[in-house]
């Protein structure tokens, strides 16, 4: 089973448009959880304010990136205003999403309409194909990004050597052998330790999402 652990660097997010994803496929290690945009919006539409807040927070980076990348015609200080208009529209129109529809096409169509509209009202013409949204963040269904802060918090909850192993393998892309050597473990022991650490992290992640 190949599963990606998406660790997002929130610091760079403020300056550069695309969200940076550190993706590592680790054989047999599952850091995935069941929090999807669909489940969040479904809960939000059932009246769960926390789920809606989380949903808006999760979709903001994608929308912000599209607006910044496409919004050269407008001064950057207006980009965040446009994002806020889109977020407000998501709230006002959220009941037009049906729980049996995928969220992303719905969200991108809605956002596209609002962004084009916002630019038009500011006197700037914007050509915004729907693909602009998909290009930014081709996330497979079911994968919710964890922020760098989340990841650090989680790594702080396991022992230091395991955390160092995970950092080396998941963030720096080293092999389990090299990572084990650095902390004084044989290749086999390092793999077992890594396996246990990832399982522990996925349990922590699940708890954090609830």
């Amino acid at each position: 089973m190949i599963v990606t652990a998406a660790l997002r660097n929130t610091d760079c997010l403020a300056r550069t448009a695309p969200v940076r994803l550190y993706r590592v496929a680790v054989q047999g290690y599952d850091l995935e959880h069941t929090e999807t945009w669909e489940s969040l919006l479904a809960r939000a539409n059932g009246g769960d304010a926390a789920a809606f807040s989380r949903f808006l927070t999760l979709v903001s980076p994608t929308l912000r990136a599209v607006i910044r990348r496409r919004g050269m015609a407008l001064p950057p200080d207006q980009h965040e205003d446009i994002l806020q208009e889109v977020l407000l529209a998501i709230h006002l129109k959220r009941l037009t999403w049906r729980a049996d529809m995928p969220v992303r096409p719905w969200l991108y169509a809605l956002a596209r309409y609002k962004v084009v509209d916002a630019f038009r009202r500011r006197g700037a013409v914007l050509h915004l194909p729907i693909e602009a949204f998909v290009d930014i963040l081709p996330q497979p269904e079911g994968e919710a990004p964890l922020s760098a802060r989340d990841a650090e918090t989680m790594l702080g909850m396991i022992d230091g050597r395991s955390a160092a192993l995970v950092r080396a393998v998941a963030l720096e892309g080293k092999s389990a052998e090299d990572a084990g050597e650095a902390v004084g473990l044989s290749a086999g022991t390092a793999r077992v330790a890594l396996h246990r650490a990832m399982r522990r992290l996925s349990q922590i992640a699940e708890r954090m999402m609830k």
Binding site: A14, H91, L92, K93, L95
Partner: peptide, 24 residues
């Protein structure tokens, strides 16, 4: 306050608003 912080505040504000009128 940075624009991103204003957005975070807006999200907190929006999230607790009552559900909009449903499209029926």
């Amino acid at each position: 306050m940075t624009p991103e912080h204003r957005t975070e505040n807006l999200i907190r504000d929006i999230a607790v608003r009552p559900l909009p009128q449903p499209y029926a």
